[in-house]
Simulated scan of single mutants.
Amino acid sequence: MRAPQEPFPDIPAWESITISRRGDRPGVRQVLRYAASDVLPLNGTGAWETDPALLLALARFGGVSCVLLGQDRRHQEEVRPLGPAALRVARRGMRLASELGLPLVTVIDTPGAAMSPEAKRGGLAGEIARCLADLVDLDTPTLSLLLGQGGGGAALALIPCDRVLVAQHGWLSPLPPEGASAIVHRDVEHAPHIAAAQGVRSADLLAGGIADRIVAEHPDAAEEPQAFCRRVGRELERELAVLLHIRRPELLTERLRRYRVIGSAADTRHSATAPGTAADDAVA
């Protein structure tokens, strides 16, 4: 049984975005270090190609094993943006989860994919589309964790799962607010206003049915990295345990229904929000 949603404060979208970009914010490797009991890293696409921006591993949270795909924020900040090879690694992980009969966990934390000519020639757009298709059709339980930044197609490619968790200061947008501001206003000064209007913050995602649960930060994951990562691990373990008790055909049917109606008036699953949250004021 899932625990009640922990109340969370009403934080402006731009404040959460700024917090999510802190250099000392814990990423997927810290989650594995503090929350997973066993981790077996894997490497590459299986076709002589690799991208360290996407971590692929077999992991165990509590008593539940899974295949984990995690966008590594450190590599993207220090080396290069996430490219098409990273998404091919992700698709290998999806195939592996299906072959092993294990649930799949995706961890999203990216400012956005590479925008270089090389990335375009490497098939970035096609890999985003193929990730989306493979993930929606995957015949095993799927769970997504929006850990921090969720910028652009690289983030959207790993989001359509059976359940979606989001860190309190996590956010998701097809286009980062600065990019949207540049298009609309020809400057980036309007980014905070654009972020609020886009409805990118965790409370908005919960209210709109995109996210199912928020993992609280007290008040910021960077201030309590170990405690936050262990909290994330407990949430992952609980969600995976519930998903494993649902029959696979029912999971797939509900997943397809969920992403067919998401964002529409027909999706009323989150119309009642947890007491003390800001979700009732969110922009859907």
Rank of each mutant, 00 (worst) to 15 (best):
Q71I: 08
I194G: 11
P7C: 04
H169G: 10
P12R: 08
V89F: 02
V188E: 14
E254S: 11
S173T: 15
R33N: 14
Q168E: 15
A3F: 10
Q71T: 07
A196D: 15
T273A: 12
E78I: 14
L206I: 15
P9L: 00
A207T: 09
S144A: 09
C229Y: 02
W48T: 15
H185Y: 15
L96G: 05
C161S: 07
P117V: 05
G93F: 03
L87M: 06
N43K: 12
V215D: 08
L146C: 02
Q76R: 06
W14V: 14
G27D: 09
V188D: 12
P225Q: 08
S264A: 09
G152S: 04
R95T: 11
V166S: 01
D220I: 12
E224D: 12
A113N: 05
G276Q: 07
E254Q: 11
A279I: 02
D220S: 14
A53S: 11
P41A: 01
W171P: 04
P219F: 06
I19F: 13
A47G: 12
A203T: 14
V89L: 05
R91P: 04
D24S: 13
L145H: 01
E189I: 15
C66T: 02
A216G: 11
D139Q: 13
S144F: 00
A86D: 06
C66R: 00
R60G: 02
G93L: 02
P160I: 00
W14N: 15
L32T: 06
S16K: 13
L206K: 11
L206Y: 08
G153W: 05
Y259E: 07
V283A: 15
D51T: 07
F228R: 11
I214W: 09
P26F: 03
P275Q: 05
P160N: 03
D51H: 08
S264G: 09
S173D: 13
P219C: 10
R80L: 09
G62I: 02
G152E: 04
I246G: 06
D134Y: 07
P12N: 10
Q198R: 12
Q168L: 10
G70M: 03
L145Q: 03
L165Q: 01
G83Y: 02
L55P: 05
D134E: 14
L175V: 14
V164A: 05
H190G: 13
P84R: 08
S20E: 07
L32R: 04
P174N: 13
E6G: 02
L102M: 07
V79W: 14
A167K: 10
P84E: 04
T140Q: 07
W171M: 11
P249G: 01
L143R: 01
L146K: 04
V164L: 05
R248A: 13
R163S: 08
L32Q: 08
D134C: 09
R73Q: 14
R231M: 10
S144N: 03
L104R: 00
D38A: 15
A227P: 00
P9Y: 03
A114L: 03
L102N: 02
Q198C: 12
P176I: 08
R234A: 15
E239D: 11
G46F: 05
T253E: 01
H270L: 07
S37L: 08
D72Y: 09
R25F: 07
G208D: 05
G276N: 06
A85E: 11
D267P: 04
